[in-house]
Simulated scan of single mutants.
Amino acid sequence: MPVKQRLMNYAGEVESFLRGSLKGRCIPPGLLESMEYSLLAGGKRLRPVLCLCFARMLGAESKSVLGFAASFEFIHTYSLIHDDLPAMDDDDLRRGRPSNHKVFGEAMAILAGDGLLTEAFGLMAQSACGLPSDRVVRAIGVLAHAAGAAGMVGGQALDMAYTAKAGVSLEELREMQALKTGALITAACVCGAELAGAGDDQLLRARSYGQSLGAAFQIVDDVLDVVGDEKTLGKPVGSDEEQGKTTYPALIGVDRSMDLARRHVAQAVESLSPFEGEEAQFLRDLAQYMIDRVS
């Protein structure tokens, strides 16, 4: 089965869970509508799928980690809502339809993002209660660090600081992308391993895979903003250059960017060398799929 179809199958588990995840939580109707508008707008569900696959690869059952995995999509969605705001990237289109603030207004979009972020941690605590508490606590700590000021939020701050700034180095770009995009992807892999009771070497390999996959994912996203099309991507193409964003193609060109992405993919695959089974093979194929998105 093609990797894209397998990704969709894994994502289907997450999608089913997400559709009922905010029901019965006494959220004001207007706020609930705004939160669900973005949360249920589709997407690859990459981060929760990574969490699920690492947990399953290391012996955990899907049902025991599904809620925790879904919390990654809450946090990812909140970040997209806020990134699209006029004060941030000022994008009008997300996942093929108007951005949250274009439909519900800026104030409600901010509150929807705030709500999703906070609800994510409630969901983690609630849904992982059947797992050993030490695993859950460690996993929550990993995710909180990755989503916060030393992770994704810090990366967005650097992105804003570097926008339209001359002289940003390749190392500065690498650091910014590792925080803004890579931190949450890496945390998904590590949390899945933590929840399954992974040993130290397995955790190191989960982290290595996530870091390499996250780097390849972002480089390819930068390239697709140059060579992709809006219909396929579901968001504006060329907006990085228009806004003066620092990207890999802007610094080293498309061809060298793709070479770098391929090296990261090879590193991700190597990280999985001790692992066997369906999930391990899917994770290897998923890493290669990052490159295949440019075609």
Rank of each mutant, 00 (worst) to 15 (best):
G154A: 02
A60F: 03
L111G: 13
R262I: 14
A128H: 00
L173N: 06
E242S: 13
D285S: 12
S21W: 02
S271M: 06
S64R: 10
I185M: 15
L80N: 09
E36D: 09
M124N: 04
D84K: 05
D91Y: 08
G122M: 03
A188V: 00
G96T: 11
E61H: 12
R207F: 09
A183I: 04
R263W: 00
Y162S: 07
C51H: 05
S273T: 14
P48D: 14
M35P: 15
E242W: 12
L46A: 03
F74M: 09
R56M: 01
A280N: 04
I291Y: 04
A164W: 06
N9F: 11
Y248A: 12
V226I: 00
I219G: 04
R262M: 15
A70T: 02
M35K: 02
G43V: 03
H101S: 11
K180C: 10
R138I: 04
D229V: 07
A198W: 09
A112P: 05
L251M: 03
S38Q: 11
G42E: 07
R25C: 10
Y78T: 08
L251E: 03
S79T: 01
A193F: 00
S38H: 13
I27W: 08
M88D: 04
R293N: 03
C191T: 08
A215V: 06
R6G: 02
R97S: 08
A188I: 00
S208C: 14
E278M: 10
G43I: 03
E13A: 14
M258A: 04
L66E: 13
L195K: 01
V153P: 10
G154V: 09
S257D: 03
E276P: 06
G277P: 06
E270N: 10
Y209T: 07
R94P: 06
T186W: 12
A60M: 00
D259C: 14
P274Y: 09
A280R: 06
R95V: 02
A268S: 01
R256H: 14
E242Y: 11
S208T: 15
A280F: 01
P249A: 10
L251V: 01
R47F: 01
E119W: 04
S38M: 13
G148L: 05
R19Y: 01
V254L: 08
E61D: 04
D222R: 12
R97K: 11
D201R: 10
K231W: 15
C53M: 11
R205A: 09
S273R: 14
P48H: 13
E279R: 05
L46T: 07
D134F: 15
P274F: 09
F74R: 02
D114Y: 13
D200T: 15
L184C: 04
A196T: 02
V49C: 04
A146S: 03
G105A: 10
K165T: 12
H82D: 12
G24L: 06
G228S: 09
P132M: 12
A11V: 06
L233S: 13
P274M: 13
A139I: 04
G234T: 11
G96L: 13
K245F: 02
A187G: 05
L93C: 00
A147E: 07
L18F: 01
T232G: 12
Q177R: 11
K231Q: 14
G148K: 00
